[in-house]
Amino acid sequence: MSRRPRRLIDIFDELQREFEEAFEGLFYGHSMWDSATGRLEPLTDVTETLDKLVVTVDLPMVRKEDIHLTVEEDYLKIEAPLERCVKYERWGIQRGCEFRSFYKILKLPTKVNPEEARAKFKSGVLSIELPKTIKGHKIKVE
């Protein structure tokens, strides 16, 4: 049986896939800043234990009293102004970039109980404990 000749569009699709695989993360990673709003995305880390999520957020140049946290069942919103503007005066072609705050909405990997959430801030690292929502039926072990 003869093979159907490949269409030009298939060849371009394949090239695009190969290119994206080769340069994944180098050109296509999302940027952690937005010069239009002056916001920076903070670094975050989520660890999951048996009964809770622990989210840490790196917030240098931020004062504890300026941090705004919103927690829902499945997301966490962090907003925090910087103590002073961070400027990138000579970087790239966007001369005079200025950033004024951190901002991030984090989708949580499991549902949590917002009313029992606790947060502390030390050495510029915010640590938030989020107890998991546990629903279900008791099973008697025989």
């Binding site: 940027s31 920076l40 790196d58 240098p60």
Partner: peptide, 9 residues
């Protein structure tokens, strides 16, 4: 603190 901001990426 500023180094921490500028080395996030």
């Amino acid at each position: 603190e500023e180094i921490r901001v500028k080395t996030r990426e």
